[in-house]
């Protein structure tokens, strides 16, 4: 039993953090968010490093590492609120790899792993996904509707770019005619649950950064002659932020581990992780703004990028309540079965 990262995983985390601290500085994030553009230079650097293919099997041109390694990158990109189409792309690859057929994998995964193609994923109703992260940049879109998922080339869908609450990422409305694209033949849940865990991991990174910025701020900011962080009204809020973050972190780490090592528990673990991380993302980033005081409400303070990313991620692939509803169904099935 070991909850820590391996030396290799720690190394991935360290290099990712160092790279993003350098390449995705707050002013650079702001610059791209203000113009609604993807950071092309950062994205091509990440592609050269093989990031989009980290969890794609070597057979299909990826690095063949696990979901834990992917979660590490998601967490670091969340910390940096990096303006790149990473999430949509790895989620599309995840669905194709875990729910698609061999020929579908062969057709799409190589380009997604290398970054030659960008992917996106959306939850659709009647063929339309109202908000798909990264879709304006995408060449391949996976639409999940109920139990069914289909993969579509961008030529097969209608992409209407739109601005979301989170301008650090592009977004669009995506519509596909009935029968267009190819249905993913395998169990769509296998892919969707892994995708959910990746989003939960990004939320953990967002929370972690929000807490880090807040702690640094309340140590510095003085009122009534003392740092505001010495007041328990403020310090206890920070403690609560840590508790929420650790709750999300522990469940997300568990879910990433089950995806590779104990897939039978993945559905439950993914639902737990997304429920905890969605709540934590909202609460922790809201607290970050509050603890920053008035300055936290300003454009310049940069806390709001985290808040916006968290809001969108919290709703992506199902919010906390829908995942708790899934969990309750799992609990009900278990309570009905004789195995204790």
């Amino acid at each position: 039993m070991d909850f820590g990262l391996t030396d290799d995983q720690r190394e991935i985390q360290r290099t990712a953090r160092e790279l993003l601290a350098e390449r995705a500085r707050p002013e650079r994030v702001r610059e791209h968010a203000e113009t609604g553009r993807t950071d092309e230079r950062l994205w091509s650097e990440l592609c050269e490093l093989g990031w989009p293919g980290i969890a794609v099997s070597e057979e299909h041109g990826g690095q063949g590492l696990g979901r834990v390694e992917l979660s590490i990158l998601c967490e670091e990109l969340g910390r940096a609120v990096a303006p790149v189409p990473f999430m949509g792309s790895v989620l599309a690859a995840t669905l194709i790899e875990h729910s698609g057929s061999q020929s579908q994998q062969e057709r799409w995964l190589g380009d997604l792993a290398s970054g030659t193609s960008i992917g996106a994923i959306g939850l659709a109703r009647n063929g339309t996904a109202e908000l798909v992260i990264g879709a304006p940049d995408a060449q391949v879109v996976v639409l999940v509707e109920g139990e069914q998922a289909r993969v579509l080339a961008v030529e097969e869908v209608e992409v209407t770019p739109l601005a979301s609450i989170d301008p650090t990422r592009t977004a669009a409305r995506v519509s596909a005619p009935a029968g267009a694209g190819e249905t993913l033949d395998g169990d769509s849940a296998a892919g969707v649950d892994r995708a959910i865990v990746a989003v939960a991991s990004e939320l953990v990174g967002v929370c972690d950064r929000a807490l880090e910025m807040t702690v640094a701020y309340v140590k510095e900011r003085k009122q009534f002659g003392v740092p505001v962080g010495s007041y328990q009204a403020v310090s206890h809020r920070c403690a609560q932020m840590l508790l929420d973050t650790e709750k999300a972190r522990s469940t997300a780490a568990f879910a990433a581990w089950t995806a590779d090592a104990d897939p039978e528990r993945l559905a439950e673990a993914a639902a737990m992780a997304k429920a905890a991380a969605s709540d934590a993302g909202r609460e922790v980033t809201a607290s970050a703004i509050q603890a920053h005081g008035g300055i936290g409400f300003t454009w310049e303070a940069d806390v709001h990028w985290l808040y916006k990313r968290a809001q969108l991620d919290a709703a992506l692939l199902g919010g906390a309540k829908s995942h708790r509803a899934r969990l309750a169904a799992i609990l009900a099935r278990r309570a009905g079965s004789p195995v204790g």
Binding site: R324, A325, L327
Partner: peptide
């Protein structure tokens, strides 16, 4: 467990309980 409000509250307790274990 089919009542949305109870289901939500019990599922949240389950998440907390698992998080405590982890």
């Amino acid at each position: 467990l089919e009542d949305a409000l109870y289901a939500d509250a019990l599922a949240e307790l389950h998440v907390r309980c698992e998080s405590i274990r982890l």
